[in-house]
Design a protein around this nucleic acid. Structure first.
Ligand SMILES: [Mn+2]
Ligand SMILES: [Mn+2]
Ligand SMILES: [Zn+2]
Ligand SMILES: [Zn+2]
Lengths: 146, 146
DNA sequence: GTAAGAATGAGAACTACTATCATTATATAT
DNA sequence: ATATATAATGATAGTAGTTCTCATTCTTAC
């Protein structure tokens, strides 16, 4: 998705909720748009510039999470990373580096995704659990660590 | 797996690495064995008894993690939960409650597990990534929250 | 038993994150 | 355009979860 259309979508979502889409918030959304996987507060701090205070960054992330513009990811080494919500990016999965913790997005072709969904339904049904979503993460060593 | 055979396996693993299998460590392993999903340090503290200091509990968990008797799980709301490693429990997946964060083990019948593995291989291959493991978590509301 | 090394307990320290509050920016009304 | 109300921000203090330090106690090997 091009940045301007993303920006328009986020703008609309925020204005619907009477939340302002300020310069600081735009910078975070842009940084997440450029990223190729979820980013931690510290990583974002480096990317959007250290002049943005960490407290503001955390608050911005909290606001964007409440408005469902971003989603938290808790999958690696206990640090929270954020990514744009799937209604903005499309559903996808992750490659997680077991050595350094880096998380990269991976797009799954539709037929495989459909197969995953079917499997999840079957597995959940056997436990009388009705799934609202699934998370599939593939672990291995990233190119930097290999 | 019965507790005494689990205990024997852990004992052997630790003695192979010249690490002692002490009373405190046994209590943590037993608590994890009785649990039906990964447990946080706080939850374990409640279960093994508040007389065990938290610092000792954390250290015990660190030792058991280094020796690969337990594995950390980072999937819910940023708190680390521990479970017995899969060489002790068998490979399995998780049902994660999106409301309260509870994580429950779910066993996947072999044919479905095989299908998951095949899918993971295909998806990873498309990204030139060679997977060492996969994590499949099914999200929904647990029985308590429903 | 004694000596050496390992484990433990108490508490300090650290890191990621959250809350507070005074200041600044923005939006709306006039 | 100015005034007023409200929202966002920055600096900083506070909190929760986790790790580190070090003195003491327990185990193991001799
Ligand atoms: Mn992602
Ligand atoms: Mn489990
Ligand atoms: Zn890596
Ligand atoms: Zn629940």
């Amino acid at each position: 998705m091009p940045i301007h259309s993303l920006d328009r979508d986020v703008e609309e979502r925020l204005s619907d909720r009477d939340v302002r889409y300020t310069r600081g918030r735009r910078r975070v959304v842009a940084a997440l748009h450029e990223a190729d996987g979820p980013m931690s507060a510290a990583e974002l701090h480096g990317k959007v510039g250290a002049d943005v205070p960490l407290s503001s960054l955390y608050r911005t992330l909290a606001v964007l999470e409440e408005t469902e513009v971003v989603m938290p990811h808790f999958g690696a080494r206990g640090i929270t990373r954020y990514e744009l919500a799937e209604w903005l990016t499309g559903h996808h999965h992750h490659l997680v580096c077991v050595d350094c913790g880096t998380v990269d997005d991976i797009n799954v072709p539709p037929q495989h995704e459909a197969a995953v969904r079917v499997l999840v339904e079957k597995i959940a049904a056997a436990a009388a659990f009705s799934p609202s979503a699934h998370v599939l993460e593939i672990e291995g060593s990233c190119s930097r660590c290999r």
